[in-house]
Design a protein around this nucleic acid. Structure first.
Lengths: 208, 208, 208, 208
DNA sequence: CATGAATGAGGTTTCATTCAT
DNA sequence: GATGAATGAAACCTCATTCAT
């Protein structure tokens, strides 16, 4: 049962504060070490560099969310059945929310203070994934409506819309995480957002 | 008719490029001056400091949008009549869009590269304004539905929703600006987004 | 008539001492600046980096020697007539010697303390040039001895010998420069070395 | 029969690579330890410090050469009979060459990568010894030529020449070691160099 | 024998800014 | 208007070495 060294823990705690306060770029290792009462050398024993220190605060939580999302999409649910009101989808959302709040500090760091750390793209990656999903859905729907068998693609407007909706979905989680301090609050807020999101989606996609 | 000095213009041009490429914080004044073929001293004659140089690129455009928005809200349109499909509202949107594209570079700078410049809060400010607007609307609607004359307020959920919707509205402009290079494209994309936004709003706000 | 700034000169003077004493790698910029009574920032105003500071001490002298040598080889003297006792060859040697002593400090730096500076290869470059020359000479001699017209090349042993002799010739200058403090002394020593060099050459190259 | 520990051997092997690649100064103990899969503490158990680690790679081979050379000079061969074509001299050369190639890696390290290690002077030491030898020879020859019994010394030029020749002799070994990968090759190249060396010597020393 | 955490000084470099001219 | 030398703090990072366990 490997206990993390006291020094390392102190470093992580102080680093979290410093990064949160100033953002990755403006945070200073010198400062972090001083506040932690640790020499720079000690810091460099535990962490490869500044980015690694930051990474140590967010790496694992990000991986967990990624696993949840990937598992969901890897499961062979046909596009049209994804994202609807099926219970399994709700389950995924709750898993995500749970993870977000279990490591809330880390995710706030990641989502608002990561510039320059190499982790800036995480939100974008999830957005891309959702984007891809919505594209498939829209395409499927178009296919079903087509009479003749000609190949169909997405219009520029539809592409923009998919990306927007994807962005909105991801941001709804981010929004809740940033604005609700506890998961209880989050659970109060989320249903309204979901209703809003679905309302937008159905309006724009046309009834049935 | 104040003619801007050649030096100042060169500086502004190069600064725009540099800030766009690296962001406010990582951009280097030294570098900007070198590329502009200007000495640091000269730069400091025209601009108070780094933030002022950045500000000179975005100040005016921001003010223009602000004027448009403030004028709109200062006009005594009752909340319930704002934000609907009335032509005057469309006019405001188009004015905003027009301004955004007239100074597209500046706004991209402001919206994506301002961290550390003191202008990070601009988007938030507009969001606050929209937020305030939506709160008034929702409040008004609740008042009308109340039978007894007791004072009413917003629930936590409603507050969160208002802020979310405000954020979404502001972001729809940002999204379009970032993803459509010309205003023509923007005009193609925007209607779909607006439909989506309204769909969400109506769904969540209830019939009528 | 651009006067070099006092600061820059002080920096160059101190740097020369420090590099000479400790070698490029072990010399410390902090130290150099402190000894020169100058801030590191000032140093970086004048010099791009450590290597550039070192380069500023040796660049020009190296170029001068290079010019002399290149001019000599570019002149269309047939191999067999180069390197003999012709007066023009003596002239070149004297030009080189003169340059070496005009910038003796720089060359001592270059020849004994350059490791890590990017200038380590200078001696090798000159050796390569001399090597090339000797190869041509040996080849020419072999051709003249051949009766039939078949193409001839150099044996491994001859190649090694050429390179050795080239190295010896270059080193004779280095040796003199390092061991004789003034050019007068150098002029006393050099003839003996030249005799030795020629003796070796003729012995190994065969009669006449 | 002292068995060297596995750890120590691994350390030595990796250190040799690292020193060879980067030179003593730039090589990093941390790196060496990491590559060897050994902790720094373990390294410090076997070696006093960085210099000692380097020393462990070259100490013994250097001592062997030194023994050979010292034995040769300690033997009471009169100066005039040293360095000539006597078989015993050839034997010494071969012993040296043999040792050089037996520990070729070590000697390459010593001769090209030792800067900063405290072993930089080894080559110089051997040169000094050869220098001393040549001085004695030259002095002896001058004595024999003197008619009257007055004391004689060496001229500055003669001194410089002795040192040069000593340097050349030592360097001939170094040259061969660096340029010939196997002793077989070395044996091909060396005779030509020796002819060259003797040619120079005889030319400069006068007939007979 | 070996671990591995910790030291602390030192390395080079970059930066926004100032100011006498 | 403009120059460009100079500031000085701060940045990240590396290193050989030590020592309690």
């Amino acid at each position: 049962m490997e206990r993390e060294s006291e020094t390392k823990l102190k470093l992580l705690r102080v680093a979290k504060e410093e990064f949160m306060e100033k953002g990755f770029h403006k945070a200073s290792l010198r400062n972090i070490c001083r506040k932690a009462g640790v020499t720079t050398g000690a810091m460099y024993f535990f962490f490869r560099d500044k980015a690694d220190l930051f990474g140590s605060l967010v790496r694992e939580p990000v991986a967990k969310i990624k696993t949840i999302v990937d598992d969901y999409f890897k499961g062979d649910i046909p596009p049209l059945y994804r994202g609807t009101d099926k219970p399994e989808n709700l389950v995924v959302s709750m898993k995500i929310l749970n993870t977000l709040y279990t490591y809330r500090d880390s995710f706030l760091l990641l989502l608002t203070k990561a510039e320059g750390s190499g982790y800036e793209k995480v939100k974008e990656d999830f957005t891309d994934q959702a984007d891809q999903h919505y594209r498939e859905v829209v395409l499927e729907r178009k296919k079903n409506k087509e009479v003749s068998g000609e190949t169909v693609g997405l219009s520029r407007g539809e592409e923009a819309l998919c990306r927007w909706i994807a962005r909105d979905q991801v941001d709804s989680f981010v929004y809740v995480l940033c604005n609700c301090e506890t998961m209880e609050e989050a659970r109060e807020c989320l249903p309204l957002l979901v209703t809003y999101l679905r309302g937008g989606w159905h309006t724009v996609m046309g009834g049935k």
